[in-house]
Design a binder for these strands. Structure first.
Length: 296
DNA sequence: AAAGACTTCAACCGCCTTCGG
DNA sequence: ACCGAAGGCGGTTGAAGTCTT
């Protein structure tokens, strides 16, 4: 039997109608002072004892997303934006896990920011990079400040006018589509792609760039739905080369195993294409990720 | 100035998981 | 082991604000 949903059972024991919609300042005050005096307990008790005509879930949401004293306010900093993009590439739409790694930010906030801002930027990038390869595109995912574009080292390498289009045929890497994971290819040792130029990679309608340094980042958005078998890199000149050849060309060694192709130098270690990697392991020491070096 | 389009974000919805009896 | 209540989460909605024409 399904539980009565918040808002569906308009009756509590007192047969009192529960309020919905925006919270009034008075309600905020009641919840805030109750939480500060009593701390978190059973949320339905909180609602009742604080004298709120709200369901427990509504109180929980209000506290977590708005009233909590440790919440950070205001716009996301460029650093936070980079972290969100990076964590999303690893964790997909697991907003609560992303939020757990961004102190003072809520899952709802990050989700909204992603859906309203970053997703749009990625889509814009997709369309602009295929039509005109303008150097100004390099700022697509970076916020411009008075010192110029915020460094996006690794995440969003520079476009240039000699960009060539390479289609990454993404038939599958064994990564569950539900995870929404993207791929980071650490190409810090690479100076060129297979054409000897910087380039742009595309999956479906989404293009991402690879520059002379940093990482090739292949974000998995909804355009990447199924991931099963093999990876091929198709060059713009319609030659087809396999991923092994490609990574050999960018000074990244590869070898085969039971699961597929192993590309060395991922996160300065190795990652098997075809394996599902342990996200928690990867996240243990984020500071070791070269693309999270914001010291420049 | 006004109307429509677009954006943002707080809050709700509904499903899944966890917990305790 | 089972069941119901509560918590947690991601997706979605819609009101309010902002921008554009």
């Amino acid at each position: 039997m399904r539980k009565p949903e918040c808002g569906k059972n308009n009756n509590n024991n007192n047969n009192t109608k529960l309020r919905k919609g925006l919270w009034s300042p008075e309600e905020d005050e009641k919840l805030m002072s109750y939480m500060l005096n009593n701390g978190q307990g059973c949320w339905s008790d909180v609602a009742r004892n604080a004298g709120l005509q709200r369901c427990g879930k509504s109180c929980r949401l209000r506290w977590i997303n708005y009233l909590r004293p440790d919440l950070k306010r205001g716009a996301f900093s460029p650093h936070e934006q980079q972290l969100i993009i990076h964590f999303h590439s690893l964790l997909g739409n697991r907003w609560s896990q992303i939020a757990a790694r961004l102190p003072g930010r809520t899952d709802n906030e990050i989700k909204n920011f992603w859906n309203s801002t970053i997703k749009k930027r990625l889509k814009n990038m997709s369309s602009t990079t295929t039509s005109s390869q303008n150097a100004s595109d390099s700022s697509i995912l970076s916020e411009t400040n008075k010192d110029g574009p915020t460094p996006m080292r690794g995440l969003m390498p520079m476009f240039n006018n000699n960009t060539s289009i390479i289609e990454l045929e993404h038939n599958g890497l064994g990564i569950p589509a539900s995870a929404g994971a993207g791929l980071f290819f650490n190409t810090t040792t690479a100076t060129a792609n297979a054409n000897g130029e910087n380039g742009v990679f595309g999956i479906g309608s989404l293009n991402v760039s690879i520059g002379g340094e940093g990482e090739l980042f292949v974000p998995a958005l909804e355009s990447v739905s199924t991931i099963t078998d093999n990876v091929n890199l198709k060059m713009e000149n319609r030659d087809t080369t396999d991923i092994t050849s490609y990574f050999d060309n960018i000074n990244t060694t590869t070898r085969s195993n039971n699961h597929g192709v192993v590309v060395e130098n991922f996160f300065q270690e190795e990652l098997t294409l075809g394996d599902q990697w342990d996200l928690e392991d990867l996240m243990k020491d984020v500071s070791s990720f070269p693309f999270l070096d914001f010291s420049t």
